[in-house]
Design a binder for these strands. Structure first.
Length: 287
DNA sequence: CTCCAGGGATCAG
DNA sequence: CTGATCCATGGA
């Protein structure tokens, strides 16, 4: 990876990357928009300001070590998205349209522990509320990483949290699900290091042992936390946009949408889902 | 006021 | 087995 350090910034040339699209396609909740090209994010116990514009990325307020050891991996920069986009676009005008709309989307490589709790919180919830609850969790239980930001709490920091304390953070009816996840780590029903060794089907089965983790949430965890791209999470947006483009607007069960996406896109299902989600939500398809 | 949100657990038939 | 209902909370 060629990079340039200049004026306290690390600068690279990078095709197929748009920070706004990447952050606003529903995979991440810990970010703040500074302007159209500049965002502040918190991940992997670090804060970062990043600008992307005209195939140039600038990493601001970070170190060379963190750039090399954290951010290149986090932003999935070693993956060639031109191949993925070409494969999905061939013989599929819907994909062609969605990809040209969100051509700089990347699938972030996020921390599984954080992603499991994040997507339990996401169920039947709205994105601004999800962001707020995660901030509550972090500021109350996470470590301070600079004068204003807090990391997402670790298992050790959360393991003794009570349902009542979770309720104070506004996790609502999902408090008991988060507590169940922590209990399952405690009694070794869930072992995240072991989960890393599993393939898609087995991993999904293990994750769905956690209360509040069903088909959609487990697919999000597999895709965003374990970077296994067979996953095709079907939420209300994906249901609407797949019905709109592929099912002649006919009401179709979520299970069937999921089967359709997985068999149509295979190992590229997760990427296809992100392009579809971003297109659907930005253009309010089906609302 | 009602409706609903990046769903899933539980209940009713 | 499938479909309906409930769930906390807050914004529209």
């Amino acid at each position: 990876m060629d990079y340039l350090i200049k004026n306290n910034k690390i600068i690279i040339n990078q095709m197929d990357f748009n920070i706004k699209q990447t952050l606003e396609c529903g995979q991440s909740f810990r970010f703040a928009e500074i302007d159209e090209h500049t965002f502040k994010i918190i991940a992997h116990n670090k804060a970062l300001t990043i600008t992307s514009n005209n195939n140039t990325i600038e990493f601001i307020n970070t170190t060379e070590d963190d750039f090399l050891n954290i951010w290149t991996n986090y932003f999935d920069l070693q993956t060639d998205y031109s191949i993925i986009k070409n494969t999905l676009s061939s013989n599929d005008d819907v994909m062609k349209k969605c990809i040209s709309f969100g051509d700089g989307i990347r699938i972030l490589r996020q921390d599984p522990f954080e992603i499991i709790i994040t997507f339990i919180i996401s169920q039947n919830n709205r994105i601004p509320m999800i962001k707020k609850v995660i901030e509550n969790l972090s500021t109350n239980y996470g470590s301070k990483i600079n004068d204003i930001d807090y990391a997402f709490p670790t298992y050790e920091q959360l393991k003794n949290i009570t349902i009542e304390q979770l309720n104070e953070l506004k996790t609502g009816f999902r408090s008991k699900y988060i507590r169940d996840f922590l209990d399952k780590i405690e009694d070794n029903t869930i072992d995240i290091q072991y989960l890393y060794t599993l393939e898609y089907d087995e991993l999904k089965k293990e994750l769905m042992k956690i209360k509040g983790v069903g088909s959609k949430v487990s697919d999000c965890i597999i895709l965003f936390g374990f970077s296994i791209t067979n996953a095709f999470p079907v939420d209300v947006w994906i249901k609407r946009v797949v019905e709109y483009f592929y099912f002649d607007n006919q009401d179709t069960k979520k299970e069937l949408i999921e089967t359709f996406g997985k068999s149509k896109f295979n190992k590229l299902g997760g990427y296809a889902q992100q392009y579809l989600f971003y297109y659907a939500r930005e253009l309010q398809i089906g609302k």
